[in-house]
Structures are given as structure tokens and as C-alpha cells.
Design a protein around this nucleic acid. Sequence first.
DNA 1: AAGTGGTCTAGACCACTTT
DNA 2: AAGTGGTCTAGACCACTTC
Lengths: 254, 254
Amino acid sequence: MNSVPTNPSGEGPGSASPSFRPLYQQIKALITQSLQSGEWKPGELMPSEVELAVRFKVSQGTVRKAIDELAAENLVVRRQGKGTFVATHHEERAHFRFLKLMPDEGAPRPHENRYLEVRRIRAPAEVARLLELKSGDAVVYIKRVMSFDAVPIILEELWLPGQLFKGLTAERLVEYKGPMYGLFESEFGTRMIRATEKIRAIGADGAAAEVLNVAEGTPLLCADRVSFTYGDRPVELRRGLYLTAQHHYQNELS
Amino acid sequence: MNSVPTNPSGEGPGSASPSFRPLYQQIKALITQSLQSGEWKPGELMPSEVELAVRFKVSQGTVRKAIDELAAENLVVRRQGKGTFVATHHEERAHFRFLKLMPDEGAPRPHENRYLEVRRIRAPAEVARLLELKSGDAVVYIKRVMSFDAVPIILEELWLPGQLFKGLTAERLVEYKGPMYGLFESEFGTRMIRATEKIRAIGADGAAAEVLNVAEGTPLLCADRVSFTYGDRPVELRRGLYLTAQHHYQNELS
DNA sequence: AAGTGGTCTAGACCACTTT
DNA sequence: AAGTGGTCTAGACCACTTC
């Protein structure tokens, strides 16, 4: 006997399958909700598969399949013998998922940040559009330089929804050690899940040239990023200018 | 009763688990071998899961898990109700996996190719190293321009192992319609599985400037690609120079 | 020893496609 | 109606970690 409902969110009797949704996807959505609501926080241990199976009244196999997909999307991390943990940006492991610039030779080196600007401004039209805000809404604007071995390599500008990042100041950024996404996740409850990037080659303008200590017109790699949190909500805009004389943007096509 | 061998490729009796390898991974390796050997060719229908389960003397579930991973790696494609097919580059679907340049506005448009050079040469040291050949081995060198709406946008150079691409001539390339990887797969039995790219911004040199019809020094996006076939064997080197005034390299971080 | 994720099986049923 | 992939279950056992 198998009592699995064909379509628990019944569309009425006799509906053959106008909107079929597998059970494990419904479970996956429920788990995602708990992640989003903060029931289990980044880095924490989640309930075991059997516990979740009891809680949702399904078999362990169904919970497994749901968690399988969440692990594939880097929302959770499984550790055999230990349990399943909520993914976090506070790990070496996650750093290079969003920082794809690598030195041409040798291992990646730590970087130092220098913050040039941290201000609250009204969102320009284009920024508002991409962040799905109203034009003129408050956004936090950040401008910083990242250096490797004291050589400035990256010039970044960020725009963040002011609503979500109320207490974000230059001091908080400067004193914080570790990746910026770690700060966002711990202090502002906003976790970056995935991002899209549009990459171009441009010539350095006067401002960029000065900061990166190169001649005006020097070719720079320009990466325009939109980052998303749970539910595909855009929550960060970022423009990175990369000096690629001794570095490159590393990408995998698969 | 469960007759699954703990470690079929026994390392001797009493060996607790010095080299444990799940059954489904062994099945996956066997299926990959059949793909590589051409037992089932790109685009063809593979045996059903139950057939494979009988053949390998395992349960359908174990075969499923093996095929799940092959599908995730884009080696096969599942179609409910129809069967599992060997992946092929002869599909709209696969095109944009290896051509990431998109127009800033509007939908992707078809492109025209013009071949500037197709020659057999001796591999330069760097090329030989990356293709794991001996320095001086024969390689096919290709230089081409790709245009969108009659505007040259991409200048590409390719290096292919001469051994694998014996009959590759300019005529074959010119007369062939469709993606180059389709030709490689159909006519030369070499299927590109995945690739790595190192991306930089450079200034156009004289030759590139002329072909792309821009001023010398114009910023170009430079993508150095190494492509791999089954067994992670490198089988293509490619340098693409992209004009990114009206286009961008589209990337997903996930 | 106990608990966790990971593997494997056998069987039932569902959704989709083709005959 | 038959065949295929897709879902779900229940149960056994394995590998790994911790107590």
C-alpha cells in the first residue's frame, strides 16, 4: 500500500495532473523556507534526515532527494557521520565561488581591502531597475580597492538595498575580517546564493587609472554582477574592474 | 538478503575499506566506457534502465543513480517516456554552453564564419604542454573570424592534435553547417565534454585590430580555453578575442 | 554503541510517449 | 496497452564520526 497523494494541494477531484508537483520538491521548498526564515542559521547543524522525514511525514528517501538538490545548489553541506549543515560564506571553501580572479602563477594570496567610499544615496534608475526597487529608494554605495601583496588589482563598486543594510558603515566594513558576504550573512541576515555576471573589456578611465596605478586607457576586465538571495530576489549590484596583467578570471565550462 | 559486494575489486581479505568504491560509480564508469568507445553514438538512444540493470546485474535504482550523474555532467540526456540519449553538440540546447558571448540587447543571432588559416604545423612548446603532446608533434592550426549581422566580433585561433584530426581541411570546415564541435564529434569521433577558460582584458594588436576593424589598442576580451574529452584528456586549445562594445561574456556563479 | 549520511535493493505506482 | 523515465516507500547494510 502506498498512500502518497498524487497532488496533495488538490486542484479538485478528478484532476488528472494539471499541476503535478513531486513530493520531494514540496519538501525541498519547505526546507528552503526554514533556511530563509533563519530557523537554522548558516553554519549550524540541521535536523537529521530521519527527523525531517518524521516531521514532514514522508520517507527518508524523499527527504534525501530534497536535500540532494539543496546540496547541489550549495545551500547546505553534507558531512558523512556528522550531519547536514547550513552553508555559510565563513569558509575557505566558499570564497572562490564568488572571487574568480586568480594569479597567473602560484597559489591564490590573501588580499587587503581599502574603502574609498561608503555612502547612502538615492538609487539611480538603472540600479533601481536591477535591484527591483523604486527609483530614488535608498541604497548603500560602496567603493573599494583590493590589493594583492600591496599591489592594487581590483576596483569595486557596490550598490545594496538600503532597507536591508541599515547599519552598514565604513567602520563595520573596515573592522570586519573575512569575506564581505560573510558579514552580510551574519550581521544583516542576507545570504547570497547565486549571481550572474556580464563581462567586458574596457579602457581604464581617469579615476580607475589613478586608483589602480596604471595609464588611462589600460585594458581592464569589467564584471557587472547581480547577486540573488532566497527566492531569486536580487540584493546586490557590483561592478568589478580587474587588472589582468598578472591575473585572470578563471571559469569552468561544464 | 542483500548480495551487494562490499568491495568487489577485493584488495585482499580482511581489508576493512582501504579503497571503497560505490557500485553505482563502477556502473557509471562502465557506461562512460561504452560512450567513449562509441557503442552508443551521440544523439542515439541508449538501452533502457532496466536493460542496463540486467546487463550489469544490479538494481534499476543503482543504474539510475549512475545515469543521474552522467546527466548532471551533460554526457547524456533523459527524456521521460522516450528514453536516455547520448548528448550531442547538434542541438540548439548545447550551443550556448561553449559560446558565452551574448548581445547586450536582443536575442542571440546566428553568426557567419570566415576562415583565415587552416594549416598543419609543429606544436609550439606551450601548445604541446597544454595538449599533453611532445614538442614538435603535428597540430592543426585554425584562425577564423565570426561575424554577427556581417559585423566581425570574434577572432579565434585553435590548436588541435594532428593525430586526432587527420582529414581536417579548410574545405570541410567551410562547407560544414552548424557548430564546430558538432563536426568534431561526427567526423572525428572526438566529443568535447568540458573546458576551462582563463579570461583577460588586452589591447588589440595590429593583426587583431585589422580583422575586427577597430583601432590598435582597443580593449578586447581574451579567453584562453582548454577543452577536454572523456577521461579528462585535453584535445583542444582555443584563444578567442572578443569585441565587447555591443556584446558581453555571460556567466553564472552558482 | 549509537547516530549520521551513503549505498543498494525490491516493489509499487505515476507521468509521459509511442504503438 | 506497453515501454520509458520519475517518484515514493520500507528495509537492510555500510562508512564515518562521536561518545
